Amino acid sequence: MDARFLGIADLVEVPSVAVVVDVMRAYTVAAWAFGQGAEKIVLAESLDEALALKARHPDWVALKDGPPAPGFDAVNSPGLLRSVDLGGRTVVQKTTAGTVGALAVQEVPLVLCAGFVVAEATAQFLRARKSDSVTFVVTGEDGQADEDLACAQYIARRATGVGTDAAEYVHRAAGSRAAAELAGGVRQGAHPDDVALCLEVDRFPFAMVAASQGSLMVLRPHPMPSPAGEDPA
């Protein structure tokens, strides 16, 4: 498999497959939302769009980066979200980098969103699709975020079927600037367990597939492909 690792600003052509990686914290939070029963996640382009969607659908759950704010029900923290019952709910998510990355590749035929918590399921999805070329979108720090790059490289290795130990990749992510900022309280709207939860490997048995639905970009969980390697499409 030919794997490319690009920042959002480096996306100059439309690849056939894109994996958008945001470890700390957008796609760890998204996975936890599905784990807590959410049906789908609408990826909002802006805070105003998120609030407008919430206004039109009062039963939807709107969340954002940073501290709590009027109109939003939750913040982008896995530690805080893990106690919220989202059974059957729709979540509207707007974050600084993760949702931006997914919206940047909305014309791509297949878009997966990932973090360490869904790494193996994502790799299995790519293997089942027999993807020859995959573009990994490293969303943080203009494509330089080591936690996102480490996770992307790990998934790429696993997608080739190589028996790769996650430990070295998790270690890199643990030493990243994002991890230090979260642990040090620099980032608002956080829980003390957020770093550990973001570094948990294969917590959830599903990949997360984003696709256009009307004018919206919608993320849904997709169960891990069977061992037989059936095409998940």
Rank of each mutant, 00 (worst) to 15 (best):
D59M: 08
G140A: 04
T95R: 11
L80E: 13
V118E: 03
P70S: 08
L126C: 04
V100E: 15
K64D: 03
L86M: 05
V137T: 00
A33L: 00
G101I: 00
R56P: 09
G101R: 07
T139W: 05
K130N: 11
L112W: 07
V108Y: 00
D59Y: 13
R82V: 09
G71S: 13
A33K: 02
E49M: 06
E107K: 01
T95W: 10
L81A: 10
A114S: 15
G101H: 05
D65K: 09
L103Q: 11
G101T: 00
D85L: 06
K40V: 01
V108E: 00
A104D: 04
L53A: 07
P109T: 01
A114R: 07
Q106R: 15
Q106I: 03
V84T: 12
A97K: 14
F125E: 07
D65A: 14
A62T: 00
G101E: 05
V91S: 11
A52H: 07
L103W: 05
A33D: 02
T122I: 02
D85A: 14
G87Q: 11
L81R: 07
R89T: 07
A62Y: 01
L63E: 04
G37H: 06
A128I: 01
L126K: 03
G35D: 05
R129H: 11
V134W: 02
C113D: 09
L103R: 15
D73L: 04
A74G: 04
D132W: 13
P58K: 07
A74P: 00
V42I: 15
V91N: 08
A123N: 04
R56D: 14
P78F: 01
R129P: 02
D142A: 12
D59L: 12
A97R: 13
A52M: 05
D85Y: 10
E45R: 15
S46W: 01
E39F: 13
Q106M: 09
D132K: 14
L80R: 15
P68T: 04
V138P: 02
T95G: 11
F116H: 04
V84L: 12
D59F: 05
L103E: 06
L53W: 04
G101C: 08
G143T: 02
